[in-house]
């Protein structure tokens, strides 16, 4: 498994995948700074600007995740398909499940890293701007990072789709549909990868998510991961 993970690491050098990791937090951060700056110009308390930033984040994060996860998974898979290396790797003395698991781990891991980066950088901005009521790190963990955790079943679904479809436009199209599917599945469809994210998106005033939601996230992620793995294992390439 280590061999496959480290081979993937070499492949990601000089690719746009690293830009993605920085782009998502970077874009959100840029927007936050813009909002804070705007409010500071109008002589309003920094707290007001901070609240608006967090409110914006709440609306944007879901959208960003629905769109960027398929993009990231698509990149990881496209690298293999475009180069004809999927088949080449599958003809090597490696268990198929290892190749698939490595893709999932990278995709899930990079998503979580993006979330953690965003969390820390927002925390840093709050301190730098001297926002009086700036949230503490544990608050931001729930409010900023938690959506990235909620996306794990979604990541598992996309690892599956991008790995078995040679034509990446199919998964990307379904990814765009996520913008509509998220609100559609909110509540009753909590068990779907889209609904899970939209249903449990943390609210500014809401309480911390019950521990069971963390557990459910992992369970649903595992479910989609194994469905994908079984299909990948049986597929003809």
């Amino acid at each position: 498994m280590k061999a496959v993970l480290s081979a993937d690491w070499v492949k990601m050098r000089r690719s746009w995948i690293w830009a993605w990791i920085l782009l998502v937090p970077g874009a959100v951060l840029g927007l936050s700074i813009l909002v804070l700056w705007y409010f500071s110009q109008t002589d309003t308390a920094a707290t007001k600007g901070w609240m608006v930033t967090l409110e914006l984040l709440h609306h944007l994060l879901e959208l960003i995740l629905f769109l960027s996860v398929p993009l990231l998974a698509g990149w990881l898979a496209q690298m293999e398909y475009q180069s004809g290396m999927w088949k080449q790797s599958l003809a090597m003395p490696l268990a198929r499940w290892k190749l698939y698991t490595a893709k999932f781990l990278w995709c899930a891991g990079l998503t979580q890293i993006a979330g953690i980066l965003l969390m820390f950088s927002l925390y840093g901005i709050g301190r730098l701007w001297k926002v009086e009521q700036a949230e503490t790190l544990p608050d931001l963990l729930i409010y900023v990072y938690f959506p990235f955790f909620l996306a794990i079943p979604y990541v598992a679904l996309y690892t599956w789709m991008t790995s078995v479809f040679e034509n990446q436009t199919v998964p990307i199209s379904v990814g765009v549909a996520g913008i509509f599917l998220g609100p559609l599945f909110k509540g009753w469809g909590w068990w779907t990868p889209w609904g899970f994210l939209s249903t449990y998106m943390p609210d500014l005033v809401g309480a911390d998510p019950a521990p069971i939601i963390w557990g459910m996230g992992l369970a649903l992620g595992a479910l989609w991961f194994f469905i994908g793995l079984i299909h990948f294992n049986r597929k003809d390439f």
Binding site: A7, R14, M85
Partner: peptide
């Protein structure tokens, strides 16, 4: 399948991927 390589990597790096696998 031809072609079979990662075009964004050098020849050496391509074989490094294979060596690890």
């Amino acid at each position: 399948e031809t072609p079979s390589y990662y075009s964004h990597l050098t020849g050496y790096e391509n074989l490094e991927v294979v060596r690890r696998l």
